[in-house]
Computed example of a mutant assay.
Amino acid sequence: MFLFISGAEIVFILIIVVMVFGADKLPGIARELGKGMRQLKNATNEVKSEIQKSAEKNGLDSDFTKGIGEEVTKVKDDLENFTGSVKRKL
């Protein structure tokens, strides 16, 4: 579950999207959504890497960076779960 949206609500949103944009534009929209998710994933990995490098450089506790890494991983997993359900619906 992503942001408390159920499967039925996702289907309803997809029906509205098809009605507004048309079926011929859906592949392009899905492609752009995929690119955006990939960019977000790359950005979170870069932020995680920079935080770890900075922490190591300044001698900070690595437990702090592990906690941040776990949170970033959770967000990434939630996004992948959401995009997976969108891909299956399309």
Rank of each mutant, 00 (worst) to 15 (best):
M1N: 06
M1F: 08
M1R: 07
M1V: 08
F4L: 13
I5C: 03
I5Y: 07
I5M: 12
I5S: 05
S6G: 13
G7T: 14
G7R: 10
G7N: 15
A8S: 12
A8H: 02
E9K: 15
E9F: 14
E9C: 10
I10A: 09
I10M: 10
V11A: 12
V11K: 11
V11R: 09
V11N: 07
F12I: 08
F12Q: 15
F12R: 15
I13H: 05
I13Y: 09
L14M: 13
L14W: 11
L14E: 08
I16S: 13
V17G: 02
V17S: 04
V17W: 00
V18S: 08
M19A: 15
V20F: 09
F21E: 09
F21I: 08
F21V: 08
F21P: 01
G22M: 04
A23S: 09
D24M: 10
L26I: 10
P27Q: 03
G28W: 03
G28P: 02
I29V: 03
I29D: 00
I29F: 00
A30W: 03
R31A: 11
R31T: 09
E32M: 12
E32V: 12
L33M: 10
L33A: 14
L33I: 14
L33H: 03
L33W: 00
G34P: 02
G34M: 08
K35S: 07
G36E: 05
G36V: 04
M37T: 08
M37N: 13
R38I: 11
R38M: 14
R38E: 13
R38L: 15
L40S: 12
L40T: 14
L40N: 14
N42V: 04
N42Y: 09
N42T: 14
A43I: 06
A43E: 14
A43D: 15
T44A: 14
N45C: 03
N45V: 02
E46L: 11
E46D: 12
V47T: 14
K48M: 06
K48C: 04
S49D: 10
S49N: 07
S49T: 09
E50D: 11
I51S: 03
K53S: 09
K53T: 09
S54Y: 07
S54G: 11
K57Y: 07
K57R: 10
K57P: 02
L60M: 06
D61I: 06
D61Y: 04
F64Q: 04
F64W: 05
K66I: 13
K66A: 11
K66E: 15
K66T: 15
K66Q: 10
K66L: 13
I68A: 09
I68N: 00
I68G: 02
E70T: 06
E70M: 06
E71S: 11
E71Q: 12
T73E: 15
T73Q: 15
T73L: 14
K74F: 10
K74C: 00
V75E: 01
V75T: 04
V75F: 11
V75M: 07
V75H: 02
K76T: 13
D77C: 02
D77R: 10
D78C: 02
L79A: 11
L79P: 00
N81D: 14
N81A: 13
F82H: 05
F82K: 03
T83K: 14
G84Q: 02
G84D: 08
S85M: 10
V86D: 00
V86W: 01
R88F: 09
R88G: 02
R88A: 14
K89H: 04
L90Q: 03
L90G: 10
